[in-house]
């Protein structure tokens, strides 16, 4: 979610430097040679690992045999895509992805806003700082650790089931239960990222003009009315922008979290598009087919981001990029 400004030289600057005296390519390269050397490793990185990988998408159009390499594998055109469209497992992955993304949108998206409102309402800075430090921490833990912690707490022999046993209640069956899988992954996401996601809301909340609260309070508005008529309208642009960005990357439900837990619940409940690509490619060795599914998801993703930005611009908000 970076808004990147376009830096064009201002008009005066362009007028000061007449076109005719603009140095030629060679002279500019000579002039900037130190900078060019400094940026070279970074440029090479993007060319190899991003644009090389972009080129690697031709895999989607071949029947890739690792032993033969890319050049000698047979060109099959759109066969991989045809196979994909007729594959129930692929559509199962699509359905799971959309369902989980929808759950994330409904349950994960408002959670940081609520937490930010709570934190913002605290007047004591010591308490506020402490709570912030605590809730930001899980963001820095890897998914392996988060999954391990959830197993430790909610697993069959975990802490919570120990308590349930002591209280004479039946064990809860959450980990490895296909029916509980989708709520579980959303809960994990909230545990890990909710605190971190408050940062941007807190920044927006601190921008709301105090005089508006004062005026509302003088007019007799209680905390609920101030929240509804001052706070929320004040941060509406940020909420709208984040919502649009989230819709733009709707299919990005995450990979590692699902990769780690898919085996425990089986593909029917646990397969999302990214894990489908992984297991098709690495477990079944169908690299061409997996690349096709990955490319399909990537293209839908670009279309979604593009549409989301169009909508953002139409609503008068700034998107990921400028028009």
């Amino acid at each position: 979610m970076c808004a990147v400004e376009s830096r064009r030289p201002s008009r005066e600057l362009r007028q000061k430097v007449p076109r005719a005296r603009e140095p030629g390519h060679r002279r500019r390269i000579r002039r900037d040679r130190v900078l060019l050397v400094v940026m070279a490793p970074g440029v090479l990185y993007f060319l190899i690992f991003h644009y090389g990988a972009l080129f690697g998408n031709v895999l989607a159009f071949v029947d890739y045999v690792p032993f033969l390499g890319l050049a000698d594998s047979a060109w099959v055109g759109l066969v991989n895509f045809e196979q994909m469209l007729g594959d129930p497992q692929f559509w199962n992955a699509v359905a799971n992805t959309i369902l989980i993304a929808g759950l994330q949108l409904v349950f994960f998206f408002p959670a940081p806003l609520a937490l930010a409102l709570l934190l913002h309402s605290l007047v004591g800075t010591t308490v506020k700082r402490f709570v912030q430090s605590v809730v930001y921490l899980p963001h820095f833990l890897s998914w392996v650790i988060v999954v391990a912690l959830f197993q430790h707490m909610l697993g069959g022999a975990g802490v919570v089931n120990g308590w349930m046993g002591e209280l004479g209640l039946g064990a809860i069956h959450v980990i490895g239960n296909p029916d509980a899988y989708k709520p579980l992954v959303v809960a994990q996401l909230i545990w890990k990222e909710c605190g971190w996601a408050t940062i941007i809301f807190l920044a927006a909340l601190s921008q709301v003009d105090d005089q508006q609260y004062e005026a509302a309070a003088l007019d007799g508005a209680g905390w609920w009315r101030r929240l509804w008529h001052v706070t929320l309208p004040g941060i509406r642009p940020v909420i709208v922008l984040l919502l649009i960005l989230r819709l733009g990357e709707f299919l990005e439900v995450g990979f590692e979290q699902f990769f780690l837990q898919r085996q425990a619940v089986g593909p029917e409940a646990g397969e999302v598009l990214d894990t489908f690509v992984y297991f098709t490619g690495f477990a079944n060795g169908e690299f061409g087919y997996a690349a096709a599914a990955g490319l399909f998801k990537g293209l839908i993703g670009v279309a979604l981001v593009y549409t989301a930005n169009r909508v953002a611009h139409r609503l008068g908000e700034q998107g990921v990029y400028r028009r």
């Binding site: 972009l54 690697g56 690509v277 981001v305």
Partner: peptide
Amino acid sequence: LFPPGMIP
């Protein structure tokens, strides 16, 4: 906008 896919 278009991050590299896992397989490529």
